[in-house]
C-alpha cells in the first residue's frame, strides 16, 4: 500500500493557505536620489558584495582553478617533478594509463570500495540514524561516539588499526579466540582474499558517522504528523518507513551518495597507512589515490625517475571522472527528489 504524504494545511507563517492577501504588496519605488546615484556610482560601488566575495574568489582561483588548469598542461609534457619540464608528449600519458593494468586494477578496487560503502551507509548507517532519532538520555553520547572516527586523524586511525589487526601483536585475533570465534582468526591484511575486505570495513567504520549525521538531519525534517497519518490509515512500521520516511530522506540520500562517491575515489591517507605504497599484499588493495601517489613519488622512494607528469595525467583523469559522475549523480538524484516531492 502506498501512502501519500498528506497535503500541508498551513503555510509557514501559520496562516491558512486561503489567508493570503488579495494582492501582493507593490515593490518600493526608488527615490530620485537613489536613481541618480545608481547611474553615477562605479560598478564596484553598485555591486558592493564583490568586495566580500573577492578574497574567496582569489583563493579559489589561486589554489584550485589555476592548479587544475596547470595540472592538465603539465600532463601533456614529460616531467619527473624536479628540474625543467621536458618534451611535449601530447595525450601520450593518457593513452598509457588507459592501457595500464595497474590503473584499471586500482580503479576496480576503488569501485568495489564505493559499492560496499554505498550499501553499508544505506543499511547500517541509516539503521543507526533511525535508532538515534529516538529521544533518549544517552542519544547525544551515542551520536558523539559514532561521529568520532570522522574527526580523528586518518594516520593515527590507520596505525591503531594496523596494530589491532596485526596477527602477532594485535588484539583482534586473541579477542576472537577468547569469545569462541577462533575460526574467524586470520592474517587480516596479508591474506589476499581478506585484505580488501579489511580495508572496506575500516573505511566503512571511518565514514559511518558522516552518513549517520546526514541521515539524522534528514530524519528530523520528516513531519511526525505524516507518519501518524500513515499509521492511522493502517500502515505498518515498515510501510511507514518505506513509503513515508525514506522518500522524505531523498535530499540526504543525494548528499550521502555524492559525498561518499567523491571521498572514496579520492581516498588516500587511511588506506596508504593501512596497506602501504604497494597496496599490500601484491597490489590487492591498491586504490586510485595510492596509485597516483606511488607514480608521482616512486613506490620505493629511491626511484631516480618518478613519473610525475604521468601521475598528473592520472589525477586529471580522476578529476574528470569524479566531476562527470558527480554531476550525473546530482542530476539523477535531484530529479528523483523532485519526482518524490
Amino acid at each position: 500500500m502506498a501512502v501519500r504524504p498528506a497535503e500541508r494545511q498551513t503555510t509557514d507563517n501559520g496562516r491558512g493557505s486561503g489567508d493570503r492577501a488579495p494582492f501582493p504588496p507593490a515593490p518600493p519605488t526608488p527615490s530620485r536620489f537613489e536613481r541618480e546615484s545608481a547611474t553615477t556610482r562605479s560598478p564596484w560601488q553598485r555591486v558592493p558584495y564583490v568586495w566580500f566575495l573577492l578574497p574567496a574568489l582569489v583563493g579559489y582561483g589561486t589554489f584550485f582553478v589555476y592548479p587544475t588548469i596547470r595540472a592538465f598542461y603539465l600532463s601533456l609534457f614529460d616531467w619527473t617533478g624536479v628540474g625543467p619540464i621536458g618534451d611535449f608528449v601530447g595525450l601520450q600519458h593518457f593513452g598509457e594509463l588507459l592501457r595500464s593494468d595497474r590503473f584499471w586494477a586500482a580503479a576496480l578496487h576503488s569501485g568495489q570500495l564505493f559499492l560496499f560503502i554505498f550499501i553499508f551507509q544505506n543499511t547500517v548507517s541509516l539503521g543507526l540514524a533511525l535508532m538515534l532519532n529516538r529521544r533518549s538520555r544517552m542519544t547525544h553520547i551515542y551520536r558523539a561516539i559514532i561521529f568520532l572516527p570522522v574527526i580523528m586523524s586518518a594516520v593515527a586511525t590507520g596505525i591503531i588499526w594496523i596494530l589491532m589487526l596485526d596477527p602477532i601483536i594485535g588484539i583482534v585475533n586473541p579477542v576472537l579466540r577468547d569469545v569462541g570465534l577462533g575460526w574467524l582468526q586470520r592474517e587480516w591484511q596479508a591474506d589476499q582474499d581478506w585484505a580488501m575486505r579489511t580495508v572496506m570495513l575500516v573505511q566503512a567504520w571511518q565514514w559511518n558517522g558522516m552518513a549517520v549525521v546526514l541521515y539524522l538531519a534528514g530524519l528530523q525534517n520528516v513531519p511526525e504528523d505524516l507518519k501518524h497519518a500513515a499509521m492511522i490509515d493502517g500502515a505498518r512500521r515498515w510501510q511507514v518507513f518505506r513509503d513515508v520516511v525514506f522518500p522524505m530522506l531523498a535530499p540526504a540520500f543525494t548528499v550521502v551518495t555524492v559525498l561518499s562517491f567523491i571521498l572514496i575515489f579520492r581516498a588516500f591517507d587511511l588506506i596508504y597507512v593501512l596497506t602501504g605504497p604497494l597496496g599490500a599484499p601484491d597490489g590487492a588493495t591498491l586504490v586510485i589515490g595510492v596509485l597516483i601517489y606511488g607514480d608521482a613519488f616512486g613506490t620505493s622512494g629511491y626511484s631516480s625517475q618518478p613519473h610525475m607528469s604521468y601521475a598528473i595525467a592520472e589525477g586529471v583523469t580522476l578529476f574528470a571522472f569524479l566531476a562527470g559522475v558527480s554531476a550525473l549523480l546530482v542530476s539523477l538524484l535531484g530529479r528523483r527528489e523532485e519526482a518524490i516531492h
Binding site: D166, P167, E187, Q189
Partner: peptide
Amino acid sequence: YQSGFQATD
C-alpha cells in the same frame, strides 16, 4: 617469516 609478514611495514 612471521605470520602476516606481507602486510607488516
